[in-house]
């Protein structure tokens, strides 16, 4: 029983990190209305930025590395969104082209990372190996801090969406883009800021995920994207709060699955969730938003 409870605890830590990544992915999809396959490469970028910020010439402490990495990833996301994706989408709004474009952009970015940083593994740790027991759960100091950072990021998104004009505009665009345009909302500015914010989230998630797995290489984002997409689809794509629930389910399930089927086979469980969703409930638990809400039903 104890092992199940402590595994549940690890699952919740995973879920917190995954939630940050999935919220960023789903928020961007909701606002811009097309899938960004390059999201995983932003995560990789974030992890590497933290590694270099904490490394030799700079030697920043981990908190500052995290912030630097998040800001740089946000800047990259903004640049890619503002100067590549948005002009492309305006010129070729067909969905087929948008998908092909972000897929090509994703592989360009990941190859750039590969060309610069090679394939070798790097190490990013916070230390904080001291183990605490919190009721039935056990967690290291580092893991508790990961959860705190993730929850802070999620709280920030919640406040943004519920309290600010920008957040309301983002939700309006996500629900009905045409209506938002007709209401005279500032679509362009909101889209640009969405790229920035989702980049911040991707960077944050990338740094924490890198510290979670300790060693990582340029593949960290492109494999993590599997869990991110499943969590986002599970919660209903375009729904940030749904993504948090989806991430919780995926994070906990994949950790508990390790106990049942072993680490190597735990992707299968996530996989089965995805296939079940595809066949039975394509719009996720809470239903998708905007344009995609009608896509699930044939």
């Amino acid at each position: 029983m104890q092992i199940w409870l402590s595994t549940l605890g690890f699952g919740l830590v995973d879920a917190a990190v995954l939630a940050v990544a999935a919220v960023g992915f789903t928020l961007q999809f909701g606002v811009t209305n097309y899938v960004n396959f390059a999201y995983g490469d932003l995560i990789t970028f974030g992890a590497f930025m933290a590694f270099f910020a904490g490394g030799a010439p700079f030697g920043l402490p981990i908190w500052q590395s995290l912030m630097v990495a998040a800001v740089l990833t946000g800047a990259l996301s903004f640049a890619v969104g503002r100067f590549v994706f948005t002009p492309f989408f305006q010129r070729r709004p067909q969905l087929l082209f948008a998908l092909a474009m972000t897929f090509a952009a994703s592989l360009i970015l990941s190859s750039v990372w590969g060309a610069i940083w090679g394939g070798q593994y790097r190490e990013l740790t916070y230390g904080g190996e001291q183990v605490h027991s919190l009721g039935p759960f056990v967690a290291t100091t580092a893991e508790l801090l990961f959860v705190v950072v993730a929850l802070a990021a999620l709280l920030g998104v919640h406040l943004l969406l519920s309290q600010t004009k920008l957040g309301r505009t983002m939700r309006a665009m996500s629900d009905d883009r045409n209506l938002a345009i007709a209401c005279g909302l500032n679509i362009r500015r909101t889209t640009n800021l969405t790229w920035l914010i989702t980049g911040l989230l991707a960077g944050t998630a990338g740094v924490i995920q890198a510290m979670q797995v300790h060693t990582f290489n340029t593949n960290i984002g492109s494999t993590y994207v599997f869990l991110i997409i499943t969590a986002a689809v599970l919660g209903g794509i375009g729904r940030p709060y749904g993504a948090v629930i989806g991430a919780t389910i995926i994070g906990v399930t994949s950790q508990l699955a390790v106990l049942v089927v072993g680490a190597a086979l735990s992707p299968v469980v996530v996989f089965l969730i995805l296939v079940f969703l595809m066949v039975a409930r394509p719009t996720g638990i809470f239903g998708a938003t905007g344009r995609t809400s009608t896509f699930g039903t044939a």
């Binding site: 899938v35 994207v225 997409i229 066949v279 896509f295 044939a298």
Partner: peptide, 20 residues
Amino acid sequence: LRLRHDYLALCLFAIGVGLQ
């Protein structure tokens, strides 16, 4: 069966990554 457009592309992509 039920997926179209982005959803289909997204799910197939995720399945590919997952299988890898």
